[in-house]
Amino acid sequence: MIPEILTFGDKGFGDELFRGTQFTLLIAASAYVIGICIGLIGASAKLYGGALSRGSAATYTTIIRSVPEVVLILLLYFAGTRGINTLLGFVGLGPIEVNGTLAAIVVLGVVQGAYHTEVFRAAIQAVPIGQIEAGKAFGMGGMQIFRRVTGPAMLPNAIPGMSNLWLIVIKDTALVAVVGNYELLSTTASAAAFTKRYMLFFLTTALIYLSITLVSNYFIGLLESRYRRGQTRLA
C-alpha cells in the first residue's frame, strides 16, 4: 500500500523522512522552550521594568513581530555566526562552523520569545490585582508571588495563546529549509529533487505536518480543560 520509495531501508526514503521529522520536533520543542523563557523575562520587563527594560522589550517585540520570519532567520543566522566567531576571536580561538540545527533553534526561539512576551503580558494583566496584593499582604517575595499566585492564575489565560504559538513554531521550522538543514522540509526537498517525485514527497510531508498539528490539537484540548478546572464557565 505504501509506495516502495517511502519505505524504510536502502530503497526508500522512509527513514530519512523519519529522521527529518525527529529534527523538526527537536527544533520546534527546543525553540518553544527558549521562547517561553524569553517571553517570561520580556513580559516581566514590560510590566514591572524601568524605562530602559520596558523600552528594549518594546523594541524587541515590535521589530520581531513586523519583520518576516525568513528575513529574521537569515539575519540572525548570519549575524549570530559572525557574533560567535568575533567573540571567539577576542579570546584567541579560531572561527567555528555554527551547527545549523542549533542556529535554527536559537533563531526560532528568539522569534517565539517576542510572541510569548505578548501572550504572558496579557495573561498576567488579566489576573485580578487583588490576588497579587493578597500575596504581598502575606509577606511573599517577588519570586514567591509568581510561583504561588501569578503563575498558576495566569496559566489558563495564557494557554490558548501558547497553544497557537506551538502550532506556529512547528510550521515555522519549515522556514529553516531556506538556509538548508536536516529538518523535515529540507530532507523532503532533496529527496524530491533526487527522485523527481515532487508530488509524492511534498504530499507526504504535508500529511506528516498535518498529523503533528492534529495530534497537538488533541493534547492541547486535554491540557486546556485540565488548567481550566475549577473556573466558572461563562454562559
Binding site: 510550521k171 521550522t173 519549515a174 522540509l185 510531508t205 505536518y209 498535518l210 498539528t213
Partner: peptide, 9 residues
Amino acid sequence: VMRGTPLLV
C-alpha cells in the same frame, strides 16, 4: 489542512 501545514510546503 491550510492551517495545519506550513505555507512553504
